[in-house]
């Protein structure tokens, strides 16, 4: 069950990002420490879309921000384009920023309501002095068109005049302005209506193909993840549970937590019996996580071993890794 390990790391291949034993902790009051991320490792190969999945509070958003050093993680290493970010000085780190961008969960809150759309998109270009006014203006139009927005209509409006989906398009356009290598998408569609979600997912897919992007896609929604990802990493309470390609993960679920997550995805079939495998209760507090496997308090198969020893990630089939002492079906 939820544990650590690095069996899933791939030394070969064009690795864009390599994260090792990443730890993020926050001080809460005097003696309390929130252990948001506890020793997560993974790598990311150029052109890949890695989905990070877990229920809210499992540390997946914190993980995304920690990769960008916002704020710097408590421990571990983040190696991006063969450069170590965690030990970098302010200046060097700033020089790395254009290559790694982020799209946020709340599309409205991620745009400054005082700025017209043209200025929102121009901001990264101005921060980095990319071209004169004419060039910037041309680039704005290009990006808006790429995001399926009509520049003539959109440019001078402000974010509050738009729907959530449109705001997210603007965010995507902005994140592309600096020609990034990698974009971290933090729940980019979870604040949107289902009808709009598909449009934004398609847009992201288009952008990825067109600009050769590598994506980290953070989500709590397995249905969404299935549509976009090439590899899925399931997280629980700051730890990795299972890593696998999406089809494999669905058809051959190994971790009990993943199984519960898969079981909770609504399937539009009225005749299908309701799955009785839903996990009970709330996740334990990250202030004081359980010993051994962190999922054991809610796991149907938990044993004494789970309390004593933390499971390590191991390969159960090609490209499918699980951190569990008693995987499903074994």
């Amino acid at each position: 069950m939820a544990g650590s390990g690095k069996a899933h790391m791939r030394p070969e291949g064009d690795v864009v990002l390599e994260v090792n034993d990443l730890v993020v902790e926050f001080k809460l009051g005097k003696n309390q420490i929130v252990k948001a991320v506890s020793g997560v490792s993974f790598d990311l190969i150029r052109g890949e879309t890695l989905a990070v999945v877990g229920e809210s509070g499992c540390g997946k958003s914190t993980l995304g921000k920690a990769i960008l050093q916002l704020p710097k993680p408590t421990g571990g290493s983040v190696n991006f384009l063969s450069k170590e970010l965690t030990t970098m000085g302010k200046k060097e780190l700033r020089d790395m920023r254009p290559a790694m961008q982020m799209i946020f969960q709340d599309p409205v809150s991620s745009l400054d309501p005082r700025l017209p759309v043209s200025e929102v998109i121009a901001e990264p270009l101005r921060v980095w002095n990319r071209g004169n006014e004419v060039e910037i203006s041309a680039k704005i139009d290009e990006l808006l068109l790429a995001a399926n927005l009509d520049p003539a209509v959109v440019r001078d409006r402000r974010s509050y005049e738009f729907s959530g989906g449109q705001c997210q398009r603007i965010s995507i356009a902005r994140s592309l302005a600096l020609d990034p290598t990698m974009i971290i998408c933090d729940e980019p569609v979870s604040a949107l209506d289902v009808s709009v979600q598909a449009q934004i997912l398609n847009l992201l897919q288009d952008m990825k193909d067109r600009y050769g992007l590598t994506l980290i896609f953070i989500s709590h929604d397995l249905a969404v993840v299935k549509a976009v990802s090439t590899r899925v990493m399931v997280m629980y309470l700051g730890k990795v549970c299972e890593v696998a390609p999406p089809e494999e993960l669905y058809q051959n679920t190994k971790h009990h937590y993943t199984k519960a997550l898969v079981g909770s995805v609504p399937i539009p079939d009225p005749d299908r019996p309701i799955s009785g495998n839903l996990i009970q209760g709330e996740p334990p507090s990250p202030l004081n996580p359980p010993s051994g496997c962190r999922f054991r308090t809610r796991c149907p198969q938990a044993s004494d071993l789970c309390a004593q020893e933390e499971p390590q990630l191991r390969e159960v089939s090609l490209g499918h890794f699980v951190a569990c002492h008693h995987p499903v079906g074994e």
């Binding site: 920023r97 790694m100 961008q101 982020m102 809150s109 991620s110 901001e123 990264p124 921060v127 980095w128």
Partner: peptide, 26 residues
Amino acid sequence: SREFVLASKSMGSKNFFIIRKHILPN
């Protein structure tokens, strides 16, 4: 605490630039 401040940081804006451009006007 709005995300556009984080967004601006993530694109490499300096602190006083963010204060001047995003926080102060709001």
